[in-house]
Design a protein around this nucleic acid. Structure first.
Length: 556
RNA sequence: GCACCCGUAGUUCAGCUGGAUAGAACGUCGGCUUGCGGAGCCGGAGGUCACAGGUUCGAAUCCUGUCGGGUGUACCA
């Protein structure tokens, strides 16, 4: 609706003042009306006239329209527009039907990205929730979204873990793997990673053994060796890692279309970099690097002196592979902040031979998950907050409030607490606050929806539209708030940021609760109209929660 | 040193493509309760928007500098 208003005002500007300008139509405080525009102030500068005088002329024209109850000039030269109640009401009825602006587009989203042979930590949970919701958001806009997960099944970290595993197993004895209990496997791999990392740092002999092992692993993967004792250990443990990931994603309600193990993109990356050397990449001290410093970035190694691809070369292979598989119109990659400058170097280098792919790629980064008062954590040292810890903490807190809490509520609480702040800095996960029934939380919104559904179930709702004469203030506020949803959706989509939706849904629920406090729905003279409002409120709330990946239980 | 992110109420955060008295939540103080789900609602107190300049009719928002925190800075990811 504000899009139409905007173009109308821009046309008016041409007609009245013979000047083309970019009108801004925005939602200001409710006391000022439904929409406001500052064209008066904008035009005043351009044509050197009194802003209020210009605003007045525009207001007079708009006042001729039958949709507006009143159009007034206020403050330094704002034009405030108030819709007629039936117009506002009608618009609220269809607010949950979102415009499919991305219809037909193929979009690849990549997130979570845990490494086999390492632990799944809280950050993986965070990034997974963010990526899942962004995918939902794009889907809601009509895109065909492919959710993929990338992870390092080869590389130094795998060699470090494998090295420590071999110590525990007493050498290349795959049969010894059977001595490790089913439920201990993931923890064992995590421990081995910590041991291997420590040895790599402290012990020269271990370091060279790990480097040797790293090469052996690349070789066995490249040769598709599944039978040698080392290969058996590798593939078994790798399988355990993926089982562990899948079990977690299942519990967290997060899905992927495909895993891209690094081993499957490494060779393409390696070859591509080699093909573009020395044109784009160059030899330096035996390694292949990209001289990012010439572009104000960092110079990074793509292929080591040992001839192995680093993260950077694999990333090159990954982008090309994604494009081969999906011919994407857009690719969105979500990772932690620490990757941001590496990615810039990688993309900058790819732009030299495949600029279209880089143009279509968006890299979003986020901070770390911390507990209140916690200090820095590192998976290399093993003192880290695991993904399951977050689930366990939230579940325990939720049980304190309601002993029969459900996974829906626990997950809703966690997801909402991850999504309600914008991406950027670190976030603090406060388990008690997240599950709280009061305040800006997932459970508050779930409860709001459960309650609205309950009212509708009890009331029944007819298809015949109610007569709308005038709305009372609470009805009007609710209708007005509902109509804002499509605008919030567009903002979230443009910025790929979910927190706008969170903030909006919370405000919406508050507006509803205020309305509901003093307006009887069932059994009132105005019940037909109010039931329609509750219905469209519930539709919007449900639509928004779906985008956030939060589902409400039947009862709570 | 250089690059990127960040600095808004006691706390956790919105607001940042400049606009009308800086908003929530938690905590705190006080009110509403025979309710269509009160897991709710209403109100009070609490802010030199890190600091200093600049641009502008107008700056939390843009620019410059300073201070403080985080991350990265070639053969890990």
């Amino acid at each position: 609706m504000n899009k139409e208003l905007k173009s109308r005002i821009e046309k008016l500007s041409v007609r009245l003042f013979n000047i083309k300008t970019r009108a801004e139509v925005f939602r200001s405080d409710e006391q000022f009306g439904d929409f406001s525009t500052n064209v008066g102030l904008k035009l005043a500068r351009e044509i050197g006239r009194d802003p209020r005088e210009i605003a007045q002329a525009i207001a007079e024209e708009l006042n001729k329209s039958s949709e507006f109850r009143e159009v007034t000039v206020a403050g330094p030269g704002f034009v405030n527009i108030t819709l007629k109640d039936p117009v506002l009401f009608d618009s609220s009825m269809s607010a949950h039907k979102l415009e499919k602006t991305y219809l037909g587009q193929e979009i690849v989203t990549e997130y979570s990205d845990p490494n086999p042979f390492k632990v799944l930590h809280a950050g993986h949970f965070y990034t997974s929730v963010v990526g899942d919701s962004i995918s939902n958001l794009l889907e809601a806009a009509g895109a065909n979204v492919h959710r993929v997960n990338y992870g390092g099944d080869v590389g130094l970290h795998a060699a470090k873990t494998m090295w420590a595993m071999l110590q525990d197993l007493g050498g290349e004895n795959p049969e010894s793997l059977e001595t490790i209990d089913n439920d201990k496997r993931a923890d064992w791999l995590a421990d081995c990673y910590v041991k291997g990392t420590a040895a790599y740092g402290d012990d020269e002999k271990a370091k060279s053994e790990i480097n040797e092992l790293n090469k052996k692993i690349y070789t066995l993967v490249n040769n598709k060796d599944k039978d040698s004792p080392l290969a058996k250990i590798y593939w078994t443990a790798r399988g355990w890692s993926y089982d562990y990931f899948d079990a977690f994603y299942e519990r967290a309600g997060i899905k992927f279309e495909k895993y891209y193990p690094e081993s499957e993109v490494a060779r393409l990356g390696l070859n591509t970099v080699k093909q573009n050397t020395p044109k784009i990449y160059s030899d330096s001290d035996g390694a292949i690097v990209y001289e990012g410093e010439k572009e104000g970035l960092h110079t990074r190694v793509f292929i080591t002196r040992e001839g192995l691809p680093t993260y950077e070369a694999k990333e090159v292979g990954l982008i090309l592979t994604k494009n081969q598989d999906y011919k994407f119109d857009r690719s969105v990659v979500i990772t932690a902040n620490e990757i941001s400058q590496y990615m810039q170097v990688v993309l900058n280098s790819i732009a030299k031979f495949a600029p279209d792919l880089v143009d279509k790629t968006t890299h979003l980064t986020h901070g770390m998950v911390k507990l209140p008062g916690a200090r820095k954590m590192s998976s290399r040292k093993g003192n880290i907050l695991k993904a399951v810890d977050i689930l366990d903490l939230a579940e325990a807190s939720s049980k304190k409030i309601n002993p029969s809490t459900t996974p829906d509520v626990v997950l809703g609480a966690i997801k909402y607490s991850f999504l309600k702040s914008g991406l950027g800095g670190d976030i603090v996960f406060d388990a008690n606050e997240s599950v709280s029934i009061e305040g800006n939380s997932g459970p508050y919104l779930q409860y709001a929806l459960v309650r609205a559904r309950s009212i509708l179930q009890k009331a029944g709702y007819s298809k015949t539209p109610p007569d709308v004469g005038e709305l009372n203030p609470a009805e009007r506020s609710l209708a007005r708030k509902i109509t804002i949803y499509p605008e919030v959706f567009v903002t979230a989509l443009e910025e790929l940021s979910l927190h706008h939706i969170c903030t909006y849904l919370y405000e919406l629920a508050q507006t509803f609760n205020r309305f509901y406090e003093s307006n009887r729905v069932i059994g009132d003279q105005r019940s037909a109209l109010r039931i329609s409002l509750v219905k469209s409120y519930a539709n919007v709330l449900e639509s928004g929660l779906n985008i956030l990946g939060i589902s409400a239980p039947e009862k709570m």
